[in-house]
Design a protein around this nucleic acid. Structure first.
Lengths: 222, 222
DNA sequence: GTCTATACACCGATAGAC
DNA sequence: GTCTATCGGTGTATAGAC
């Protein structure tokens, strides 16, 4: 066949501009708020006229949808990378998992709002975009489960604790670490309640490593 | 003086329509999301043309501002009422305080977003509107403090835990009680970590009372 | 204090030429 | 695939008559 290579190149190029559009959309969202995304602004940033975007996305909500799926997929990658070289000791590992998600969420508030907070009344993720979200949460459940914490109720409490530290940090100290610093203590509290054996560590004034994980990021940041 | 009674009546009437407008604004916010509030819709509901609203509020953000202050003032009233007949035993009291705020927040998601989540990029509460918010949080700190939990760090952890249960409930089970049911367990966990003596209770399968507190509400609900 | 009329800017989306 | 032109709609806010 002589058409196939061309077909591939075209599909490749098409996917590339799709990514360009999404990158621009993230930029706009970070600047104007996730709800302040406009096709005009996106088009300007990629050097197009607004109607041209419709050659790549069926609607504005289709862009949100792609962003939603991408955010959760990136989150999964980020956490997989972070957990690969996380400590093996249960309590330290619990802290590492929490900090991984915490730091991912804090690097981009608007992204986190799209992922977790319902701020777009007339946007509902499609099944395709929702799948990475479920996968990511289930991966988190698996990490916690490996430490011997297997009850659904305990995992719900874990996610709530993490979400709360995040929520407070974003709302009341968006550029500081007031609640992030409480993560180790909070995780110890949780580990005690979930019946995780204390071990020799108890993770006292351990030096956690946000910076290393943050450095090997793909580079999307305000 | 003969003008004074008329002056009073006028001021009274004026304040009444101001309240009418705010009530309509809450209705619209609940229907379209807090960011979906429009002066058109508000005006229609109150039986005015949009420009007439400017006789009562200087701008749309002035309406947000009044809503913000009102929400926190109502929250303070709600919690004062709830804590008046809350149990005296420390752990039960801690649970009661948490549930009071939890239930207030859950009765109106949009109100909670205006109060706590930054979803309106170009709205910042005025000093006047912000004062009730500080007062309400400080009242909460006082309640917790009375139980012997006085360290700032512990109160930060308490607010984070509560915010997290709320956040998860709103995002993942807005009409259920999956995370609300975890409040007693979460509070026990926190009490243990904060060094609150266990006492004879330990708040096992205690029957909490969301309904009673909810019933004596002023009546703003979806 | 409320109205009509209107200014002004912005939005998402479509049609059709190239 | 991208463009120009445009439709039909949204929104906040102001001016001036009554």
């Amino acid at each position: 066949m002589i058409g196939t290579p061309n077909r591939d190149r075209q599909a490749e190029r098409r996917e590339a501009t799709r990514q360009e559009i999404l990158t621009a959309a993230w930029d706009v969202a970070r600047q104007n708020g996730i709800a302040g995304l406009t096709l005009r602004e996106v088009a300007v940033r990629v050097g197009m006229r607004p109607p041209s975007l419709y050659s790549h996305f069926a609607s504005k909500n289709a862009i949100y949808d792609a962003m939603f799926g991408q955010a959760w997929q990136d989150c999964m990658d980020w956490m997989t990378r972070a957990m690969a070289d996380a400590p093996r000791a249960p309590r330290a590992r619990l802290v590492a998992l929490a900090l991984a998600f915490f730091d991912y969420a804090m690097t981009d508030v608007e992204r986190f709002q799209l992922m977790n907070v319902r701020v777009l009344p007339d946007f509902t993720p499609s099944a395709d975009a929702y799948r990475p979200a479920v996968d990511c949460i289930e991966a988190g459940r698996a990490y916690v489960s490996e430490l011997g914490i297997t009850r659904d109720e305990d995992f719900d409490l874990y996610t709530a604790l993490l979400a709360g530290l995040l929520s407070q940090q974003q709302a009341n100290d968006p550029h500081g670490t007031r609640w992030r610093d409480l993560v180790p203590k909070a995780m110890d509290m949780f580990a005690d309640a979930a019946g995780l054996p204390a071990g020799p560590e108890k993770s006292g004034p351990r030096r956690s490593r946000p910076t290393k994980a943050a450095r090997q990021n793909s580079g999307r940041k305000s």
